Simulated assay, not measured.
Amino acid sequence: MKALKTLSDVVVFCYAVFIVLLLTNLLDHKTLFDSTTEEQVLALYKALGAVGAGLMLVKLLIGKLYIMSLQYDRHRAQVKINELKADLYERKQAYRSNSYSESASMEMAVASN
């Protein structure tokens, strides 16, 4: 998921750089897109705006999915930690009860002698 998020970030950044270069006339839209009339240029900019909006929407959705996957991984890690704590507590209780029963049986053996 992290690779997908990184890829979407790179694509959006490259698209933004392309648009900036196109708007500052460092790239010529007439030669790149073979647009000669004003209507074609207007349609080109509308299409580029729509593509940009779509890319930003995809980037937003991928970001949300990435955050949800991180939260799920954190939840799974917390559940595992709780299971390990419970196991440790049970082992301590078993050790204490074994130590107590051994010391009690030794005291009883000493007392009966």
Rank of each mutant, 00 (worst) to 15 (best):
K2N: 08
A3M: 07
A3H: 11
T6D: 11
L7P: 00
L7T: 06
V10K: 00
V10W: 00
V12Y: 00
F13S: 14
Y15C: 09
A16G: 05
V17H: 12
F18Q: 00
I19M: 04
L21Y: 10
L21P: 01
L23A: 10
H29R: 07
F33W: 01
S35C: 11
S35Q: 13
T36E: 11
T37W: 00
E38A: 09
E39H: 03
Q40A: 09
V41L: 05
V41E: 12
L42N: 15
L42S: 13
L44T: 01
L44Y: 02
L44G: 00
K46L: 06
G49L: 02
G49E: 00
A50P: 14
G52A: 02
G52L: 03
G54E: 03
G54A: 07
M56V: 01
L60R: 05
L61G: 06
S69W: 15
S69T: 08
L70G: 01
R76A: 15
A77F: 09
Q78T: 07
V79Y: 13
I81C: 04
E83Q: 03
E83P: 00
L84Q: 02
K85F: 09
A86I: 10
L88D: 01
E90I: 06
R91M: 08
K92Q: 07
A94R: 08
R96S: 10
N98R: 14
S99D: 11
S101Q: 08
E102H: 11
S103K: 08
A104N: 04
S105G: 04
